[in-house]
């Protein structure tokens, strides 16, 4: 079980939330080229190590927040509202 610390609801089983994946910088839609936009949509680094990722607290406070998780061990450090 992965326990995700929601900054508002406290520690929760990850099944109560939705994982929205790695944080990827979003290009400005008004100036980005199609290929930049699609790179943002689809390409991921997918490393085995620390990533910053977004979670959606779907059955709690319904807020989005980011945390850092190590994808090799599922260890989680520090959580901040976004």
């Amino acid at each position: 079980m992965i326990v995700v610390p929601c900054p508002y609801c406290g520690p929760r089983n990850s099944v109560d939330l939705r994982n929205c994946g790695e944080v990827v910088p979003r290009p400005d839609p008004s100036t980005a080229s199609l290929s930049e936009w699609r790179t943002y949509l689809y390409l991921r680094e997918n490393p085995a190590g620390w990533i910053t990722e977004t979670w959606y607290c779907r059955s709690g406070c319904r807020r989005y927040f980011t945390i850092e998780r190590n994808t090799a061990t599922n260890e989680i450090r520090d959580s901040e509202a976004s």
């Binding site: 790695e22 390409l43 991921r44 997918n46 085995a48």
Partner: peptide, 18 residues
């Protein structure tokens, strides 16, 4: 499952999550 790790070694990011 390890495809991204190898591909990143060649500088070719993939549309993959593991």
């Amino acid at each position: 499952g390890w495809a991204s790790l190898i591909s990143n070694m060649a500088g070719v990011p993939l549309a993959i999550t593991t």
